[in-house]
């Protein structure tokens, strides 16, 4: 079944264009519907946190935005332009890899398991994309990378390989690596889930400093409700592949409207 694409705009225009827009996005794995006609907007500079039970599709949202997963229907727009599609003769067609690479350059991502390149030093990891993708000179790349390693407090670890760094340090390098590419949108996918409890704050402190400091749009999936409540502009509760409820942290955590949100929050708070 092919979708009628004519109901989607070729690009988003006007004063109030969101940085990220999911329109009617559906994702299936065989018979399993992971995301069901998702609509979600994220404004420029906004910090949106996604919470929800496992299997609710929250990580899939980030992975689709990073083009690690394809979508089965709908359109994703980034910065006004379609990411998953491109315009050809006034029609939306599936995006070419060239188009995807152009739009993808606006997005950066940090992963649960860091995914640092083990054969490169901390500095090498940060420089890799700058030199190989953006085509910066080694000197420029090193300068920019060192700025960011300094920001995450790891300037002195520049020549260490990931295997010699703690989990918290690795995740901070991964954040520096992603930020070095100067993305407009940053995705944080459960970045503290694989960390020992005592080093979680190393990473959350870095993210905290990003909020407000840059004109950076952020989407975060996390299990840390306290952190979500503290730094988010908006929290989305996902259930069964759709947004069950969303709102400011104060509203969602203090006065959830939906029964499922209440149940989820109670279960999570009980566990802590």
């Amino acid at each position: 079944m092919t979708e009628d694409m004519s109901r989607y705009p070729l690009r988003l225009e006007g004063d109030d264009v969101p940085m990220v827009r999911f329109r009617n996005v559906t994702k299936r794995y065989g018979p399993l519907v992971v995301l069901n006609q998702l609509d979600l907007d994220v404004s420029t500079g906004e910090m949106v946190t996604i919470i929800g039970p496992s299997g609710s599709g929250k990580t899939t949202v980030l992975r689709m935005l990073m083009t690690l997963e394809t979508i089965d229907s709908g359109v994703i727009y980034v910065d006004g332009e379609p990411l998953t599609h491109m315009e050809r003769n006034g029609q939306l067609l599936p995006a070419s890899s060239k188009h995807i690479r152009r739009i993808r350059s606006k997005i950066g991502m940090c992963f649960q398991h860091f995914n640092l390149f083990p054969h490169m030093t901390a500095l090498g990891n940060c420089m890799e994309g700058l030199v190989q993708v953006l085509g910066l000179s080694r000197r420029e790349a090193e300068e920019r990378s060192m700025e960011l390693l300094d920001m995450v407090g790891l300037a002195e670890k520049r020549d260490e390989h990931p295997s010699r760094l703690s989990g918290g340090q690795q995740q901070r390098v991964a954040i520096a690596r992603a930020l070095a590419m100067r993305p407009k949108v940053m995705l944080f996918d459960e970045v503290t889930s694989a960390l020992d409890p005592e080093v979680i704050s190393e990473v959350t402190n870095v993210i905290r400093r990003l909020v407000g400091a840059h004109d950076l749009t952020m989407l975060m999936v996390t299990h840390q409700m306290g952190f979500a409540k503290e730094i988010s502009d908006r929290v989305c509760f996902f259930f069964n592949g759709a947004v069950e409820e969303q709102g400011t942290p104060a509203k969602l955590f203090e006065n959830p409207e939906r029964e499922r949100t209440r149940q989820f929050l109670n279960a999570v708070l009980d566990a802590n």
Binding site: L68, F111, F114, G129
Partner: peptide, 17 residues
């Protein structure tokens, strides 16, 4: 590991690189 492929995509590397 799959994460290595994904990290390379997230850095917007070409397939060849």
């Amino acid at each position: 590991p799959r994460g290595q492929w994904e990290a390379a995509v997230a850095l917007n590397m070409t397939d060849r690189k």
